[in-house]
Design a protein around this nucleic acid. Structure first.
Lengths: 280, 280
DNA sequence: CGATCGTTTGACGGTGCTCAATCACCGTGG
DNA sequence: CCACGGTGATTGAGCACCGTCAAACGATCG
């Protein structure tokens, strides 16, 4: 019943330490429905009637896997706090990050399609999730229209997110991809009432690189370039957006970086590759 | 140059012809709920009770836009027949294709999130869709649990699709991207009981290029390479998969093309770039 | 404090983007 | 019937962005 069950591989040496980290998904006190709705962030202004059931909550330690690719699903989760990365592991061991999920996002809903987890979800920090057991899901939705609406709302957002991620990966230049990612992240922060200018990256450069489908060295270099352009200030995982408008300008260009940006330090000239521009 | 014209501007000369194409979304006879469930393809073995409402159907002419980015949504659509491409148009006129949608796929559900269409949907051939008016959606789902289940099922599949698309774009080598796309398409064909080996591409090379985030010339070249490898036979938009296993092998490699593949004609030697392989 | 991992930067080579020309296909009109 | 323009697909040439390899530095944790 535990979300964490059997693992595909087993490392030989540090088995127990490894096991401890992976199994760090522990139950916490159940919460009223109201809390779940608040996490999802749908228009919960209206007082919702108390539901005749409580929402189970799990605590997930940093680095622990909430969902395991290939496992049988038993619940759908809504992120209550923290951050996750969702990924698929291919046979050659490559981890393809598909998305980062923050508060209010749904994890594991795709598993309802074929009864198999299609992605793994790994906590990037201490996190908590509201759990909706598949056995109860339909009943609960039926009992509480508010829950049903919130779920549909969250699913719509989830699909929108997928499109946003595709847009990031679609950019040609690596700097543009990174800029889009940062703007996206900034928007996520703003949605949750946090500062959209000061970001703390919960994920490693490698994870970002995987999401953007570039090498992690390229992510580093792109950070440096954006700093050179005076758009950012970066200190390891702390990022401050100095020029939101300029960053958005990078975002918008399907081609290379716009040359008209004031460059703090003189850099190499950059050609402007055009890709599939219709009607020039 | 205009792929299928999702232009925000209006061409001056052929205004009426253009208008005619865009507005080629015409009502057709409503169908019983059973038809919609069949299109979605959920386990509809059980006899579903007839619903007290009929599902509106729209016919969409080839090249016509069912959904317009930025418009107010009034319905969610389920593809009953035909194919669509979903895209976002950026300010510089670039059309980013986000997905291709075939039978059973949901179009426009993301619009329920913020009350705005986030993508356009353009028919790639003569198509029909079942329409679920947003005003009635909740009521109908309440009246018919079968419809509700089918929708949740389809939403789960939709999210899974999003992951699959991200996987395509994530591949490093262009040939691998194309191979993944073809395998994906082949799987879609198989799902609908069609031959998974003989594909007819409803979309142009340019559309494929946009989805895979490469130049359309590169798509052409990648087709040629896969033909050279003896994996495909290509005649314009007709594609026959000669070696499904070999094609899947390409798919699996996160790196470049596997060299052990028998090459019909001797080609240039290809290095095997590795990207973010964990634990070597 | 040492070991391990994450991050950054450099150099080099290759894949893929741009530009360009050519060919095939189609509906139109002379 | 056959030019004719237009669109889409294919192929070639050149160059530059980015992936690989490598090394150095910094951060984190036991």
């Amino acid at each position: 019943m535990l979300p964490v069950t059997a693992l595909p591989e087993d490392p030989p040496a540090n088995r127990d330490a490894w096991f401890a980290r992976r199994c760090a998904v522990i139950p916490a006190a159940a919460v009223p429905l109201r809390e779940l709705l608040h996490a999802i962030g749908a228009d919960s202004d209206a007082q919702v009637p108390e539901a005749p059931f409580a929402i189970p909550v799990w605590r997930v330690r940093s680095g622990a896997a909430l969902l395991h690719e290939g496992a049988r699903p038993d619940a759908v989760h809504v992120v209550r706090s923290g951050t996750f990365k969702c990924l698929k592991t291919s046979e050659d061991g490559y981890e393809q990050v598909l998305s980062f999920a923050g508060q209010g996002e749904i994890l594991g809903f795709e598993s309802t399609w074929r009864g198999l987890q299609l992605t793994s979800a790994i906590a990037l920090e201490e996190s908590t999730v509201c759990s909706l057991p598949l056995r109860e899901l339909d009943l609960w939705r039926q009992l509480s229209p508010a829950l049903d609406h919130a779920l549909q709302f969250a699913l719509g957002r989830q699909l929108a997110r997928a499109g946003e991620i595709a847009e990031m990966m679609a950019a040609v230049a690596a700097e543009v991809r990174l800029a889009r990612f940062l703007v996206w992240l900034s928007g996520c922060m703003a949605e949750h009432g946090q500062s959209p200018r000061r970001l703390y990256l919960r994920m490693s450069r490698r994870d970002i690189a995987s999401l953007l489908a570039v090498a992690h060295e390229t992510v580093s270099r792109s950070f440096s370039t954006l700093v050179e352009l005076g758009l950012l200030q970066v200190n390891n995982r702390e990022v401050e957006i100095l020029d939101p408008a300029g960053l958005r300008a990078c975002t918008r260009s399907t081609r290379g970086l716009p040359d008209e940006l004031p460059r703090v330090a003189p850099g190499r000239h950059r050609a402007a590759p055009r890709l599939n521009v219709v009607a020039a």
